[in-house]
């Protein structure tokens, strides 16, 4: 223990980069990144459930617009979407005078909108696949019981679809965390923004980015752990019996 503290002290002895000030930038960046990713995932999830149901609808006027939305947001880079929403809206004449400007003025909300729409599109496709792969027998059994469409969705299709979608959705959460690194191009001081600031100020790319990479790794690890726990709890019925 003694030698460990000595080793750390030695490491920090000629450290001019990781001062209390820069560490506070990283700290604020961590908060911003977590807020941004968490909020966009939650809102995206809420949007994705009805969209995924609609995506499988027989009515062309429900299905086609949702297909088109998913196609556009999965078919273009998130960076381009972010630029369009942050810098693009400015070119709508007179937007500065409307109530919209109150929320679009700061970079956080435009970034949140871009991230949410992007993750909602991917999550919609994940859920649609899971809903589509519901065993035919379950649906036929539900019909034989005389369940209405809504009741069948609520009791049979959606609960099992969510469980099947869980591993794929865990991936989407991690992708979203990593995609959030582009938020700093619209002046948000997220984790990557803090790293870029430290990098530019001290000309120390290795220190700045290795440190931030370690933080991202910790975040990814906790997401992995959470999803492993959920899968263990919720997918227990899919395991071979007798174990």
């Amino acid at each position: 223990m003694e030698s460990l503290t000595q080793w750390i002290q030695g490491l920090l002895a000629d450290n001019t980069i990781f001062t209390l000030q820069t560490l506070s930038y990283y700290g604020e960046g961590l908060v911003t990144t977590v807020q941004l990713v968490f909020l966009s995932l939650v809102i995206g999830l809420v949007l994705a459930v009805p969209l995924a149901i609609g995506r499988g609808s027989k009515h062309r006027w429900i299905q086609l617009p949702i297909f088109f939305y998913c196609y556009v947001f999965r078919g273009t880079p998130l960076l381009v979407q972010l630029y369009l929403i942050y810098y693009g809206v400015v070119f709508i004449d007179g937007i500065q005078d409307t109530w919209l400007w109150v929320i679009l003025e700061k970079p956080f909300v435009p970034a949140l909108i871009a991230f949410t729409l992007n993750t909602a599109a991917y999550t919609t496709e994940i859920f649609r696949g899971a809903i589509k792969s519901t065993a035919r027998g379950e649906i036929e059994a539900a019909r034989a019981y005389g369940m209405s469409w809504w009741l069948m969705m609520r009791r049979i299709v959606l609960p099992s679809a969510f469980r099947r979608a869980l591993p794929a959705y865990g991936n989407e959460v991690i992708f979203m965390l990593h995609a959030s690194a582009i938020a700093s191009v619209v002046t948000i001081m997220d984790l990557t923004g803090a790293a870029r600031f430290v990098y530019a100020r001290f000309y120390a790319p290795f220190d700045a980015f290795l440190f931030v990479a370690a933080i991202y790794l910790c975040l990814t690890f906790s997401i992995l752990y959470l999803f492993r726990y959920l899968e263990k709890r919720l997918l227990v019925h899919l395991k071979p019996s007798g174990q």
Binding site: Y87, V90, Q96, V185, T187, M189, G193, F197
Partner: peptide, 14 residues
Amino acid sequence: RYATADDMVLDMDA
């Protein structure tokens, strides 16, 4: 903080 002076001018105009 902006990556280029142009982005900054754009946001100033906005």
